[in-house]
């Protein structure tokens, strides 16, 4: 999986799952500790609510452990966990109203006549990030999940396809539509805001 995600080797993961199937609490703890932050990061970005994200994260782990007997070590545990997490997210999102508020570009760094030298100030950086995440929030759940798994979890289309349980071609299609949607949402920003935004990203990178 992603570079920051692989905290345990495949072999060790298999051992942990075999021990967890026997009811070994230490193995269960290690499985939780090695996956919880990444799973929570994904779920939080999907539902944008800390309390809900933690509940979903816990639910996903419990569901995974409850059916651990049927899990095949042919797949990565993280793939399975993300699949369960994504499904629980979808159930949660269905119960909630979609985001419909207009994007406000006036709060973006550089959108006023002020000096652009302060672009690295944390407030501006936070505004730029929140602007992007606000656009991501407006994507449909499959598009959002695809974008998060592709950019944030750094997964390839085939692994994303396994997690979202759709063909790789559909994943590509979601990614294409998501980019088009993000572009459409971010286009209205003023030239100056755009330049500042771009500079910030370059410096932050």
């Amino acid at each position: 999986m992603a570079t920051n995600a692989t905290t345990i080797t495949r072999e060790h993961e298999r051992d942990l799952i075999a021990q967890a199937k026997q009811g070994d609490r230490v193995a269960l703890r290690e499985l939780v500790d090695s996956h919880k932050e990444r799973l929570y990061g994904f779920i939080f970005r999907m539902v944008r609510n800390q309390h809900d994200a933690e509940d979903i994260c816990q639910d996903a782990f419990l569901k995974a452990f409850a059916s651990l007997e049927s899990f095949s070590t042919e797949y990565r545990f993280s793939t399975w966990l993300f699949t369960i997490g994504y499904r629980v997210c979808l159930n949660n999102l269905r119960r909630k109203k979609p985001v419909s508020s207009e994007l406000d570009f006036t709060t973006l760094p550089g959108s006023d006549s002020g000096d652009s030298n302060d672009i690295l100030e944390s407030e501006d950086a936070a505004k730029a990030k929140s602007m992007v995440w606000a656009c991501v929030d407006r994507l449909s759940p499959p598009q959002r999940a695809t974008v998060l798994l592709f950019y944030k979890q750094e997964l390839g289309c085939h692994e994303i396809a396994r997690i979202l349980q759709m063909p790789p071609a559909t994943v590509k299609s979601h990614l294409h539509r998501a980019r088009a949607c993000l572009r459409e949402l971010l286009e209205p920003m003023t030239d100056r805001a755009y330049e500042t935004f771009r500079n910030f990203a370059q410096r932050a990178g």
């Binding site: 939780v32 970005r45 933690e54 992007v132 944030k152 755009y194």
Partner: peptide, 30 residues
């Protein structure tokens, strides 16, 4: 625009931490 957006999504390491006792509570639930 797309490059910058992708870059921000992938590099935004805003701490999204779980509550410290998450694992304990989860195992208690198990």
């Amino acid at each position: 625009l797309l490059e910058v957006t992708g870059h921000i999504i992938s590099s935004d390491r805003k701490p999204e931490s779980l509550t410290p006792d998450f694992t304990d509570r989860l195992l208690a639930c198990v």
